[in-house]
Amino acid sequence: MDTEPDAPVTEADLHAWMDGELPEDRRGEVERHLAGNPDLARRFERYRAQRAMLQETFGPLVDRPLPAALVPPYARSAGRPAVRPRRWLPALAAAAVLLVFVAGGAGGWWLRGWSGGTGGGGAAFVADAVAAHRVFAVEVRHPVEVGADQEAHLVGWLSKRLGKPLQAPRLAAKGYDLVGGRLLSDARGPAAQLMYQDAAGRRITLYIRPASGAPDTSFRFAQDGSVQAFYWRDSGLAWAVTGDLDRVTLSAIAEEVYGALNS
């Protein structure tokens, strides 16, 4: 920092002074500057009061009792039960008919927690699914690693790598045929992507990740720009159906996927 006696005192200097980050040899100068500018001094007095208020207001939160999910042992290893209280209705999650809740609708409170187990945060999971969709759905020459012509090999390989029996659901009733799939990796390990395409060349992807030990969930919806996704957990796997489609069409496809897996 410039220590010439006539170096102008900047706004940054004043904040650094208040935060104790100003070099000592510059403090006197800043204090003289404040003494000569009462309006400025008042403004920084208010900032100081504001900082004290911040500490008084939010400080006590540190002493609050923690919810069970935030106290060790943390549910992480496969097979360990999820410790976070489930916020959805277990009976509903188990029901054959899935209710689809959409953004802005009622009932959001019990959908908030995508919780527990090794499935990871719901937001993180669906963000990975959407990112993978964006990367590969536009791919012209190599959209998949293994094509639908080798479906048995594809399914066997991905099942082995994910450690769970997978299948590629038939979506022909919705106008989508399997293109193929690929093995991916994310922060938690292996994940699989299956790609489908309709007659017009529109693509949707299924993103699947192991979620052992995590409870099943109902459908949840996420959107990023024009890309939408429905995601859920079922029998130890987390699934996301992602596409650049309207929500109604995509939800029908998601239900088709869920139905195919559970029929």
Partner: peptide, 15 residues
Amino acid sequence: MPLPKPPPDPPPANG
């Protein structure tokens, strides 16, 4: 389409 019965979860990793 029948969903194959998933294998039992692997034993928990120990810490």
